[in-house]
Design a protein around this nucleic acid. Structure first.
Lengths: 198, 198
DNA sequence: GTTCTATTTGTACTAACGTTCAAGAAATCC
DNA sequence: GGATTTCTTGAACGTTAGTACAAATAGAAC
């Protein structure tokens, strides 16, 4: 705010784009080699820039990792919010989002897990990592009133994501949805075979 | 095996102890600095031995990490099995075990998470990381017959552990137990209306 | 044009890394 | 005793890490 005229400083504007590029390159490195593979040099090489430019934007490696995790978390949070706002069957939407972790979204989910593991050790990252869980809790609160059910949905989401990342064969969406529904307390009896639920 | 006489080679015996010492030192380093802090040098310094001795027992860093994760996973698996065999209220036992992650067992749980995150990237570690989930599944199978409920308990366990590690204030055991029971289908209101909540 | 700020680059420094290796000490075997 | 296997050590190899810094470029302000 403050620059109601369309004029922007082309230098800082370019800087913003560079920053985003570097974060993107960082996520690519995390995806390929894990958080341990993130160095100023590897990130710079991934982005096709000199090492010192990466240092210019992120003075320490920690800054870089914090920014990368925040970026991933923001995307996930936004998607959950989209489900909350524009989706009717919210649990189904969450199930589909989680299920992506086994397929096209696997790399992102892996990066997110790598970085949120760092969060347990670095206090600066903790609020960011908690944000994801809070947005899932918000979604769950739209489905059930019981606080314990909300906690169960959040916990199940975490665990399902882990399972999807670690298991060889991906679980079907119906399974993910079923577990979430059960955690929410919406399901009493198991649907043997192909259930035409509700 | 094969040495039914009490005689053992004092050399290999000492070697076994050294191996265990190095693994213990590795876990201490993982606890303090994370998996990224594990180097032959840091581990050796932690154990009070020269670097080359760490290399003698674990030729590569990967060997060292695999051994460390296996060690942690074995302990957890054994504890779960103990609950399965000698405990009446198995879900309560699991809840108490998980709850330790917020207190005295926090370091171990952190190390376990650090290392199982590695498992998503290194196939050699995957069976080890899966072993923990399978033992929890076995416990859950003793509580419920429905496969989906078993999956829900496993997922909830993972998520609860994450929450206990990341949250500032530890959740009470009752809460952990409640979430597990709900995932197992022991607590959920069957359908809205029929359930008197508890 | 000049001046100022933001961005970009190449280079260089110290420290730590994984790993190798030859030689020494300890236990066992003959 | 000597021969052999196992464990232990210190030093060194080449590589890569984080970081610093001065010079160069690009855009904005004047």
């Amino acid at each position: 705010m403050g620059d109601e005229d369309g004029r922007v400083d082309g230098r800082t504007e370019r800087g913003r784009r560079r920053r985003a590029e570097i974060i993107e390159a960082t996520l690519a490195v995390v995806t390929r080699d894990g958080a341990g593979g993130v160095t100023h040099r590897t990130v710079a090489k991934e982005a096709g820039i000199p090492t010192s430019l990466s240092v210019y934007y992120f003075a320490t490696l920690d800054d870089l990792l914090v920014a990368a995790l925040s970026s991933v978390a923001d995307v996930y949070t936004a998607r959950v919010r989209e489900i909350i706002d524009h989706r009717d069957d919210k649990l189904r939407g969450l199930a589909e989002l989680l299920h992506e972790s086994a397929g096209p979204g696997r790399e992102r989910a892996l990066a997110e897990r790598e970085l949120s593991t760092l969060a347990a050790r670095r206090p600066a990252l903790r609020p960011v990592a908690r944000g994801w869980r809070e947005s899932v809790a918000e979604l769950a609160a739209a489905v059930t009133d019981e606080p314990e059910a909300v906690a169960a949905v959040v916990a199940a989401s975490e665990g399902l994501c882990t399972a999807l990342l670690l298991d060889a064969e991906p679980a079907p969406v119906e399974h993910v949805h079923g577990v979430l529904a059960r955690a929410a307390g919406l399901r009493a009896a198991p649907t043997e075979g192909a259930g035409r639920g509700r």
